[in-house]
C-alpha cells in the first residue's frame, strides 16, 4: 500500500533536517514505542506495541538509513519488523522543501504487511497505518515547534 502526505512546519529547513537526522528524537515519536537502541550507521531497533482491533502485539522493528542527501534535503529509510506472527516493511522517503515562513515535509511510504495480519486485517490496515503516521508527524511537529 502506498501512502503519502505533506506537513507544514514553522521551522527553518536546516533545523528540521537536523532534527530528523537524529534517530533518538525521531523514535520517541513512534506511537507505542517501548524501548529502543541506536547502533552504528543510525540503525535503530525498537520494540513497538501495536494494537489493531483486539489484536495486540509487540513488534520488533528496525530502521536503516539507505540514503541521506543533505544537499537536497532528501532521505530514504527502510523500516522493517515483525511481531504478532506477521511482518512488515516500509520504504519511506522524506523531502524537505523551503516554503514561506517555514518548511514543508513531504513524505511517501510504501508499506507491505505479510502474515496473518496482512491477510486477516488488510482491509483495515490502511486506516491503521494512516493513523500511526499522522500521530507520528503530529509528534514531530509538536517537538519542533511546541
Amino acid at each position: 500500500m502506498k501512502l503519502e502526505g505533506k506537513i507544514f512546519l514553522k521551522s527553518r529547513r536546516e533545523d528540521v533536517w537536523n532534527f530528523i537526522s537524529e534517530p533518538v528524537k525521531v523514535i520517541e515519536c513512534i506511537p507505542g514505542v517501548q524501548e529502543y537502541s541506536v547502533t552504528e550507521g543510525k540503525r535503530v531497533t525498537a520494540k513497538v506495541k501495536v494494537s489493531i482491533g483486539f489484536i495486540k502485539g509487540i513488534f520488533n522493528a528496525s530502521s536503516n538509513v539507505i540514503e541521506e542527501d543533505h544537499e537536497n534535503y532528501f532521505a530514504k529509510l527502510k523500516l522493517s519488523g515483525s511481531g504478532a506472527g506477521s511482518g512488515f516493511d516500509a520504504l519511506v522517503e522524506v523531502k524537505l522543501n523551503e516554503v514561506d515562513s517555514g518548511t514543508e515535509l513531504a513524505w511517501t511510504a510504501n508499506v507491505n504487511v505479510s502474515g496473518p495480519l496482512g491477510s486477516l486485517a488488510k482491509p483495515m490496515l490502511e486506516g491503521y497505518v494512516k493513523k500511526i503516521v499522522n500521530q507520528f508527524f503530529d509528534c514531530i511537529k509538536y517537538k519542533l515547534t511546541g
Binding site: 511482518g87 516493511d89 507491505n112 505479510s114 502474515g115 496482512g118 491477510s119
Partner: peptide
C-alpha cells in the same frame, strides 16, 4: 505467496 515471498496460507484452513 505474497509479493515478498511470504506464504499466506500456511494452515489447513486456507
Amino acid at each position: 505467496f505474497d509479493e515478498r515471498g511470504w506464504v499466506v496460507n500456511p494452515n489447513f484452513t486456507n
